[in-house]
């Protein structure tokens, strides 16, 4: 298939083309920028929801059930599920689909697994590429399931219009999310596996953390609801979908525009800095110079700031 063909068919939600286009953008194959330019005007229609929370909290199961609920409501769903890439081999075992396979024969659901591929700051770009393709292809809702640990959460969450933060009792470290300081990204909180002992404690911890955060002080601001679910049985999932809708409504055109501006700015700056880095590394002699400067810094013959300034001069001269 020619690239133009792939784009045209992907925009018509032809599964094979959608899938291939995601690969082209993820792998940055020949022509990916051209393809991106063509689909981008068609994006911005889907409700993008990020699902995040610690490993073992039931993210995949919740995503599976959310997809089911959206389908019940007549909406189409795209899913991007991210799993960690092994830092040793660069390979990845992508197992999230396991819990979502029931949807595979439903034309209204598209599931794509991705590895983090160890890119510095590049993960959100690859993910956002997939999200944009699904958005442009006309999926009404796009669910992003994150890895569940670390800074990438915040990064990916920034792609979403609505961020769902899952907690679960009895993981032994109930307040890990709060500690990690990513509490602020949650637009709604889900306490999954509500039949486990310790639910009350988790809820209380979330409440306390929310009260401490600045957001709750502002008049008329969104107060993140705390919902209880049993993703395994689907209990409480309809309420999560309702709450996501509420949140979108609360954002309104203005709020949504603000979020998307934030995302656009971050993305553009990131791509630009990538280009700058690339531009630098393509300069003849640049990598040797970088190595030389690094050695100088290590030997305390130069400080990192002046070394960086020297590198930068190499780019702009």
């Amino acid at each position: 298939m020619a690239l133009e063909d792939i784009v045209r068919r992907a925009l018509a939600r032809e599964v094979r083309a959608v899938s291939r286009l995601i690969s082209i953008i993820e792998d940055r194959l020949e022509g990916f920028e051209r393809a991106y330019a063509e689909i981008y005007p068609h994006t911005g229609r889907a409700h993008i929801i990020g699902i995040t929370g610690p490993p073992g909290s039931g993210k995949s199961t919740l995503v599976d059930k959310l997809a089911m609920e959206y389908r019940k409501r007549g909406l189409t769903v795209g899913v991007v599920a991210v799993d960690p890439t092994s830092p040793f081999s660069g390979g990845a075992l992508l197992g999230d689909r396991l819990r979502m396979q029931r949807h595979v024969l439903d034309d209204g659901v598209f599931i794509r697994s991705m590895g983090t591929r160890g890119r510095l700051g590049g993960l959100s770009r690859a993910t956002s590429g997939a999200v944009d393709v699904l958005d442009a292809a006309g999926y009404d809702v796009v669910l992003i399931e994150t890895v569940g640990v670390g800074q990438s959460e915040v990064e990916i969450a920034s792609l979403a219009d609505t961020v769902v933060l899952i907690q679960v009792p009895g993981l032994g470290d109930d307040i890990q999310v709060i500690k990690a300081g990513i509490m602020e990204i949650g637009d709604l909180f889900v306490v999954n596996k509500k039949d486990r002992p310790g639910v009350e404690r988790v809820m209380a911890e979330i409440r306390t953390a929310l009260e401490l955060s600045e957001m709750s002080c502002v008049e008329g601001s969104w107060v993140p609801p705390i919902l209880l679910t049993m993703a395994e049985t689907g209990e409480g999932v309809a309420e999560v979908v309702d709450a996501c809708g509420e949140h979108l409504k609360h954002l309104g055109e203005e709020g949504l525009a603000e979020r998307r501006l934030r995302r656009a700015r971050a993305e553009t700056m990131e791509i630009a800095s990538q280009r700058i880095w690339q531009g630098l590394s393509e300069r003849p002699g640049a990598s040797e110079e970088a190595q030389r400067l690094a050695e100088a810094v290590a030997a305390r013959k130069a400080d990192p700031y002046s070394a960086a300034a020297a590198l930068y001069r190499l780019l702009v001269q």
Binding site: G91, L94, R97, L98, L105
Partner: peptide
């Protein structure tokens, strides 16, 4: 395969040929 640097998608047990093919397409 993962340790050889590949990305591996595992679908789990009890898959029909139709499900396998549909997953293969979505995952490209």
């Amino acid at each position: 395969l993962r340790d050889a640097g590949m990305e591996v998608i595992y679908t789990g047990l009890r898959q029909t040929p139709e499900q396998i093919v549909a997953a293969a397409i979505q995952e490209d």
